[in-house]
Amino acid sequence: MEYPSRLIENAVGEISKLPGIGKKTALRLVLHLLKEPEGTTAELTEALTELRTKIKYCKDCHNISDDEVCNICASHRRDRSIICVVEDTRDVLAIENTAQYTGLYHILGGVISPIEGIGPSELNIDQLLQRIENNKNEVKEVIFALSPTMEGDTTAFYLTKKLRQFGVKISTIARGIPIGGELEYTDEITLGRSILSRTAYQQD
């Protein structure tokens, strides 16, 4: 594709690196920004810069936050006896949108995947174990809300062995979610029912 300006070409190249955006879509966005007042681009640039420089992660659950402790962990309305273990922030947003869960979360930052070179040490597993150890008189149940994939099941299997020492109840969301599907793409009704009808995690 020929571009009328090297500056446009550079901008298109950077924007097209975003997931789901090809060169044509990136070009439309760039041309749109050129038509907008210069202040609009400046505001977008400032917002993205602040995103990268000022964003924080909750010291308890590792959720994205503006403060040291996220709004969920800081809320006195949450049930602190339940911790829902998820892969990333997108899963927290999906579950919160169901309005069916009132406990706390713990974000692993991914799942165990030997093929991709991701082992337990690359995830927030030790932090989860330490969190339960520090609150062992309060935490009664840990829910696995991991995508029903081989990697998700491997991670749940590993966590189950590690959590046995604490004597907490271990459950997993009901498999109303398609096998091999991604949690973030599941509709809110199915996801909400899966949380409510969770079952005890069985380790084969």
Rank of each mutant, 00 (worst) to 15 (best):
E184A: 13
D153M: 04
E43N: 14
C70E: 11
T154F: 02
S16R: 15
K161P: 04
M1T: 14
I170G: 00
E188W: 11
I82M: 09
G167F: 00
T25W: 04
A26D: 07
I82G: 01
Q127P: 06
R164G: 00
G192Q: 07
K17I: 07
P19S: 09
L93G: 06
G13M: 07
I55N: 10
L196G: 07
R80F: 09
D91Q: 08
R175T: 02
N135V: 11
Q127Y: 09
H32D: 00
I195P: 09
E182A: 12
G109V: 02
I115Y: 07
T186K: 05
E138Y: 08
I64Q: 08
Q130S: 12
P148E: 01
S65Y: 08
N63F: 05
N71K: 06
V85Q: 03
E96V: 03
Y3N: 12
V85Y: 00
N137T: 10
G180F: 09
N10D: 04
L31P: 10
E138F: 10
L44V: 05
K17W: 07
I118H: 04
F144W: 03
Q130G: 15
L183G: 08
T49L: 15
E9N: 13
S171P: 11
K140C: 06
K169R: 14
A26T: 08
T155F: 08
K169H: 10
L129T: 02
A99V: 14
K24T: 00
R52S: 14
G103Q: 06
T49H: 13
Q130A: 10
P19Y: 00
A145S: 12
I170P: 04
S81Q: 07
D126F: 12
N137I: 05
S121V: 12
E87T: 05
A47W: 11
P114V: 12
T53W: 12
G119F: 09
L7M: 15
V92G: 00
G117R: 00
Y57R: 07
M1H: 14
A94P: 01
R193S: 12
I132P: 06
L183Q: 03
L123W: 04
T155C: 08
T89S: 13
K56Y: 01
E50I: 10
I189V: 15
L29W: 05
G109I: 02
